[in-house]
Simulated assay, not measured.
Amino acid sequence: LKPATVLGKNAWTTQYKISRPGLYQFLLEPTPYWEPAEDKFIIHYSKLYVPAYGIEEGWENPLGVKTEIVPLTRPFGNYVGNLFRGKVLVDGKPAANTPVEIEFYNKGKTAEAPNDIFVTQTVMTDEQGIFSYSVPWAGWWGFAALTDADYQMKKDGSDKDVELGAVLWTEFVSPKLKK
């Protein structure tokens, strides 16, 4: 990993050369960070799928991490307007009635929301941990299912809650229509 700046924030970058066919699944499990505004620690497990050389099998299988979104719609090769579905798992079990926040990666500020309430869309999972969302325009979209951990962490000698985020990034494209 190399330090970088993304959207004016400190970040990390890496490069990975894909040299053979397969479905590549990248997962980032970060160090917990303290969020003073929420008075809790946050850990977001971020996942991304890359199909290489025509291989795409296995995207529907969980990775088995603490929390994750298991796609029920293929998480790549999707058009704008497709209905995206996923299942939220915590400790391998469905996370019922869990909020899932959806945001557009607005690099270059290509989209302008009427006001801040539109920036983060939110849906809830059902009793089986399943959610759905229809993406309105092309680009990269992040889905983040937020739950509370079953443990706490110490901050200045006090026990503090921990938010777990299961994050999945996927791109939606517009088709090129012939005239």
Score class of each variant (00 low, 15 high):
G108D: 10
L89C: 05
Y79N: 12
A111W: 13
E171T: 13
N61S: 15
E112C: 05
P51K: 02
N82F: 04
V65P: 00
W169R: 14
I117H: 09
P71M: 02
G157H: 11
A96E: 12
V162K: 06
G165V: 07
V100I: 12
G129T: 02
G54M: 00
A111I: 12
A37T: 15
Y151S: 13
G92Y: 08
S134F: 00
L83E: 14
E171V: 12
R74T: 13
M124S: 13
F118T: 15
E163H: 08
T110Q: 12
I69P: 02
L89D: 06
K155E: 13
T73P: 01
D126R: 03
Y53M: 12
V50A: 01
V90C: 07
Y79Q: 12
L63E: 08
P136F: 07
F41P: 11
T120Y: 14
L89Q: 04
N115S: 14
P51V: 01
E35G: 02
I102Y: 03
A166N: 10
I43D: 05
I117Y: 10
K154G: 04
G77Q: 04
K160L: 05
E35V: 15
G92S: 13
V88N: 01
W59C: 00
P94A: 06
D150W: 01
L48T: 07
K93H: 11
P94V: 12
E103D: 11
P62S: 08
E112F: 09
E171Y: 07
F84L: 13
P75A: 05
A95I: 05
D39E: 15
E57L: 08
Y133N: 01
P136V: 03
P75C: 07
E35W: 06
T125S: 08
Y49K: 07
F131W: 05
N106C: 12
K93P: 00
L72G: 00
G92T: 10
Y133R: 02
K160D: 04
S134C: 09
L48W: 06
T98P: 04
V70T: 09
D150V: 06
Y79C: 10
V167A: 00
K107M: 14
I117T: 14
N61F: 07
L168R: 03
S46K: 13
P94T: 11
L89H: 00
G108A: 06
L48Q: 07
N82H: 06
G81C: 05
N97Y: 11
F41E: 06
L164N: 01
F131M: 06
E68H: 06
D126T: 04
K93A: 15
E127V: 15
I130H: 03
T120G: 02
R74I: 10
G77W: 05
P136Y: 08
K160Q: 14
P175G: 14
K47S: 04
Y53K: 05
L146F: 02
G54E: 09
E127T: 11
W137T: 07
A113D: 10
N97C: 03
G165H: 05
Y45P: 01
A111Y: 14
A95Q: 07
A95G: 06
P94K: 09
W169N: 15
I43P: 00
G129D: 04
A52L: 03
F118P: 11
K66N: 08
G54P: 03
V70R: 01
T67N: 14
N97Q: 10
G92W: 03
E103K: 14
E68K: 04
D148W: 06
K107Y: 09
